[in-house]
Design a protein around this nucleic acid. Sequence first.
DNA 1: TAGATTGTTAATCGATTAACAATC
DNA 2: TAGATTGTTAATCGATTAACAATC
Lengths: 220, 220
Amino acid sequence: MAKREKSQPTVIPRAAASRLSRYLRYLEELDRNGVTTTSSQALGAALGVTAAQVRKDLGYFGQFGYPGLGYKIAQLTPELRRILGTDKAWNVALVGIGNLGTALLRYKGFSAHGFRIVALFDASPALVGKRVEGNEVHHVDEISARVRECNIELAVLSVPGEAAQAVADRLVEAGIRGIFNFAPALLNLTQEVAYVSIDLALELEQLSFVVTQRERESGL
Amino acid sequence: MAKREKSQPTVIPRAAASRLSRYLRYLEELDRNGVTTTSSQALGAALGVTAAQVRKDLGYFGQFGYPGLGYKIAQLTPELRRILGTDKAWNVALVGIGNLGTALLRYKGFSAHGFRIVALFDASPALVGKRVEGNEVHHVDEISARVRECNIELAVLSVPGEAAQAVADRLVEAGIRGIFNFAPALLNLTQEVAYVSIDLALELEQLSFVVTQRERESGL
DNA sequence: TAGATTGTTAATCGATTAACAATC
DNA sequence: TAGATTGTTAATCGATTAACAATC
């Protein structure tokens, strides 16, 4: 069975990419437990998707399995890291050093997956020049210079909604490649900049919606 | 045009419910700007979806518009709140008062949308009994008693991945209706408990994936 | 070899978009 | 009234699942 990736990169459903991360997490767990081989059946069962889904998702990127045997964890794991781009370390800027920003800075999950927060920015004079978790906070005016200087490719945005677009514009102008946005705002970005956004209140509202719907269904 | 909701609750796509929250946000903004009327066309253009999508999404829940006129913001806004369940205040428990938990506790976006964090829990003896933002931290053993006592329906989980399932089990046993999970763990929950989960590292990995894909496309 | 499981094509399912009669 | 826009049905598009020949 061929071991090389696809030359024709068909359009990949976003949901498939998200599942790839989950497969990787589970493979890492299996590896820690000393398991060396798995199958689309086993992976799917563990993560609540069908075996066909697993094979289809992997199939977007190449042929990684062995018919009759399944997948070798030691082989598939680095392939998934390569596909997801986490086979290298990323330099990340953190803009907005408030409660959420500080929590994100301290969050171990980012560094554990190769994301290094190497520069902090804030607009508040009270914060600029201070050190947070060993990193100096710079003024947002310095974004452009430092993003280039430190080879920063990704930015995490945890500023107030009103400030988000202006900061995003600076980041884009500085040549950032992707923005992870926590501000409750719709950002207008050029197509070249990748974009992932989380609106915490909106997500909690989704929970409220589902609970409410079920209460109405059962109560009536 | 009829003004009443559907009696037959067809299955609602999850993506549609998420857009509902966005429509509501935008209507609130329009209202602040003194706008009184809008249309599916205008709403869709502002949020990057088609007018047909907007009408279809609203159509799952009833008839709220006026042909030829559009939607009256003063009417549609409370309807959306009612649909999403944010026309009432929710009592929320916060379990795990670490960096992220504390940031979530201070986050103004939750209370602004009617979510009141009314009880804090942690397993650490160093934290139990302390006050954080004016709220006493209770031991996780007290979850069951306090969830019932304070009429808590939702819980935010910001505990380490290893602890998540055990805490979730306690919450379910205490009769919680929905869990908003930040722990990087797959939770096994009964069907009756609603569930929204955010894995921060996984989301950042999605950003890395998109950036990597584009670099490979353009670089080769 | 016989059994198991892959990769991939075809069939199904669900969500989005287009079209249009109804109507403000 | 004429113009605009809804609610809804039908058409399209995309993603998931099933099926199965290839093959370890």
